[in-house]
Structures are given as C-alpha cells and as structure tokens.
C-alpha cells in the first residue's frame, strides 16, 4: 500500500479538456468511440427515428447568414459532473459517482425509467429502444472488455473506463507511475483526434520525476483563469462538469465565441 502511494500521486480524478478552436468536426472521435464501446450500428432508419446512440457527438452550429456563415463544432460527451443531476434521480442506483470522479452506469441494475436522461442538461445519455444487432461480419470486432447492452437500459460515455482500469491495474502491479497522456490510458476518442483537440488525464497527477502536473490539469487551470478561454458547459447550473471547454478564437474579429456556450445573454 505504502509502496503504491509513492508511485501514484494521490487519489485520481479523471478529467478532459476540449479545445473547440482545434476541432475540425471530422467525426473521428465518434467512429473511434463506436468501435471501442460496442455501440450498436446506427442505421439511417435509427437516425430518422431519432434513436441513434452516439456517446460522443459533434454538434454543428452555423453562425451568420450564407456568404459570411461560420461553422462551429462542439464535441459533446458525458460531462462526468461532480454534482451530476442524473445521479440522485435514479431509483435503483444504476448511475453513481465513483471515487475517481467518474459518473458510471451499472447496466445490470438499470430498469430503464429514463429519469436520468430527462434530468441531464446535456442530453448525453442514451436509451436502447431496440435490441442491438450486428451483422455477422461485424460480430468479431466487438470489444471483449465492454458489455453489450440489451434493450431497455440507459448507456453513456464512460471515459472508456475499461482502458482506465486496465492501464491503472497494470501500472499498479508493476509499481510504475502512470504516464500522463499514455495512449493506453486515453479514451478512444482522445487517441483518435487528429488535432489533439481532446486532452484527457488525471487532475491530481504530479510527475514523480519532474514534478510536472498533467496536461489536462494545466489546461484547465490556465483556461479557467481570468483571461483564459475555458468555460464549463452550462456552468450556471452548478453541475460542476469534469470536462472543460476552450472557446474558439476567431481570427478576423479577435473576439471569441461559439454556438454551444450557454451562458445567459
């Protein structure tokens, strides 16, 4: 136990930073998430029914009229709120907060009352309206580390908890410190992002050799300081999300804004 505490830097708290200025809307994260987490195939039909499941989605907003239109992307995933509205309302404790700051979903307990999704201001929880199915050719690509969810239950982004678990277990076993930005630790979406718009890590991480903090902690600290670009999505609700967004910088105006920011005004 004491040995371990040398190698880790205290209690872990997972967090993510999303730099909207870097996001190109390429949807690589969406596809990566889809294949990592055994998300059912979203057919055209399912999109028409508005029942598609995308743990991370790129919301696209237009600003301005046609010739001068600007496109805005905002990757939206579970915010893993510290004060999550979805948690207290679940009658069966199917969703709760774990000790590492993650908002986790226990599929076996879920009865599908859908109270949690109604209370999620980010609409980032998904319900399995149908029994998921894969074509035979795709069945072998299912990730064995991730449960295949049946119909009638909620699911949502887990920050790829299977990857976090596997990597932390290995490093704890080998008595090594987890490296910040380890690709085995990062969620699939972060690894897939070509522009590094998504940054993932442990907020309490301190490198035992260099004494440096993790990248996400630094980003969060800098961006949320007085003149930083950072904000919390719908921060006025007090949900205390673990995802920090960084505003887009408009080259022409020098003034930054984007479509998903929902502060009043």
């Amino acid at each position: 136990m004491s040995d371990n505490s040398v190698k880790t830097s205290g209690k872990r708290k997972w967090s993510m930073a999303v730099d909207i200025d870097k996001c190109t809307g390429c949807q690589a994260c969406v596809v990566a998430c889809q294949s990592e987490n055994n998300i059912p195939i979203n057919t055209e039909d399912l999109f028409k029914q508005r029942r598609a499941i995308q743990w991370i989605r790129i919301e696209r907003y237009w600003e301005g009229e046609f010739p001068n239109a600007k496109v805005r992307f905002i990757p939206l995933l579970c915010q893993h709120c510290d004060n999550a509205p979805c948690e207290p309302v679940c009658p069966v404790y199917a969703t709760y907060h774990n000790q590492e700051g993650l908002n986790v979903q226990v599929y076996n307990r879920c009865i599908g009352s859908r109270l949690c999704v109604n209370n999620c201001p980010y609409h980032i929880r998904f319900f399995n309206f149908w029994e998921p199915s894969w074509t035979d050719s795709l069945k072998n690509q299912l990730n064995p580390d991730v449960t295949v969810r049946s119909r009638g239950i909620m699911e949502k982004c887990t920050f790829c908890i299977q990857r976090i678990r596997r990597t932390t277990r290995e490093s704890d076993k080998n008595n090594q410190q987890l490296k910040d930005g380890d690709r085995r630790l990062n969620p699939a979406c972060v690894n897939a992002c070509p522009t590094d718009a998504l940054v993932f890590g442990d907020l309490n991480y301190v490198d035992l050799d260099t004494g440096e903090k993790s990248k996400v902690a630094k980003l969060k600290e800098e961006s949320l300081s007085k003149n930083g670009r950072g904000y919390k999505l719908m921060g006025e609700l007090g949900t205390e999300p673990n995802v920090t967004y960084l505003k887009k910088v408009d080259a022409d105006s020098g003034h930054s804004s984007h479509g998903g920011d929902s502060s009043h005004g």
Partner: peptide, 10 residues
C-alpha cells in the same frame, strides 16, 4: 421493446 412506441431522443 420500447422501439414500438413513438418515444425518441429527446
């Protein structure tokens, strides 16, 4: 399953 109803996201 509940797919037969008109319920959807959101």
């Amino acid at each position: 399953g509940l797919g037969v109803t008109g319920l959807n996201r959101p």
